[in-house]
């Protein structure tokens, strides 16, 4: 029975795969060809050369990477202990937390920015010299806009929640923690030595999604007046068609490369220390 269905399905698999592949690869290939094939000059990589030389390439890319790293760190530090605690001591609150964490999905970024900027503008004059006001200024430092990290943390919540939730469902956290504690591990040790290593996949997924989100985010950064990579791409390529497409191809490659690096770093096989020679 199963074999019969299997053989019947197999050719369809190929068709679907080819269809999906074409859907992704054709536009991509077209973009690449468009950027390297200049009419009258043949194949040239000038467009890519221009990007690398354009002002702000390195700084905006670095800013985006810093923002991504900071966002990942903050969102995981916030969510991992919260989700583990939720799972262990108040599993019935999960639906509530799920709804709260999903809110950023239903609030459009544009509305989020409107809220953020009106908060940032708020503040009576006489508070101008207080630490309160100075904090407001500091988090808008264009060299490293903390306010973006905070906003991105909120925007990443739905993805991080789902990734961690799936990871926590796959392991029996309570028993693992209790086993660790009966082996003499205190709470932090149980969390770091036992829970986190078994959430490796979930942590990796959460980081992936957050990284992709931060690298591609345009609306919030643009409207608040900062210039990470996505904003820079739009600014620099403005009127030059070939350059703008080259920049998109490049940003795609950069994102892929980073995801690969993350996978390589996070996906190593667990090592065994007691049996290590």
């Amino acid at each position: 029975m199963a074999g019969l269905t299997g053989t019947r399905i197999r050719p369809w698999r190929g068709v679907v795969l080819a269809g999906a592949g074409l859907y992704f690869l054709v536009p991509l290939a077209a973009s690449v060809i468009f950027t390297v094939d200049v009419p009258g000059q043949g194949v040239t990589f000038d467009a890519y050369g221009q990007i690398l030389k354009a002002e702000g390439f390195t700084s905006s890319l670095l800013l985006s990477l810093e923002l991504a790293a900071a966002t990942i760190a903050v969102v995981l530090l916030l969510m991992v202990p919260a989700m583990v605690a939720l799972r262990l001591s108040a599993p019935r609150l999960r639906p509530l937390v799920e709804v709260i964490c999903s809110l950023p999905l239903v609030v459009p970024p544009i509305a989020l920015v409107a809220g953020v900027s009106s908060v940032l503008r708020w503040g009576p004059e006489h508070l101008a010299s207080t630490p309160f006001f100075q904090t407001f200024v500091a988090i808008q430092n264009p060299a490293f806009p903390v306010v973006l990290v905070l906003t991105y943390v909120v925007m990443a919540l739905p993805f991080v929640f789902r990734a961690l939730d799936a990871g926590l469902r796959a392991v029996d956290v309570r028993t693992l923690v209790e086993a660790a504690r009966s082996c003499g591990a205190n709470w932090p040790a149980a969390l770091i030595r036992v829970v986190l290593p078994n959430l490796r996949g979930a942590l990796l997924n959460a980081s992936f999604l957050t990284l992709a989100l931060v690298l591609g985010e345009f609306t919030v950064a643009q409207l608040l007046g900062f210039q990470p990579f996505a904003v820079w791409i739009v600014t620099v390529s403005g009127s030059q068609a070939q350059l703008s497409v080259a920049v998109s191809v490049l940003s795609l490659l950069v994102t892929w490369l980073l995801l690969l690096v993350l996978a390589a770093v996070g996906g190593r096989r667990p090592t065994s220390s007691a049996s290590r020679k």
Binding site: V171, D172, T175, E178, A179, G184, P197, N198, S275
Partner: peptide
């Protein structure tokens, strides 16, 4: 329920407490 730490080998599981 099975409660061994899935990311550790049998020897490391046994040695976990000693490590702590």
């Amino acid at each position: 329920s099975y409660s061994l730490f899935p990311h550790l080998s049998a020897a490391d599981n046994v040695a976990f407490g000693l490590r702590m």
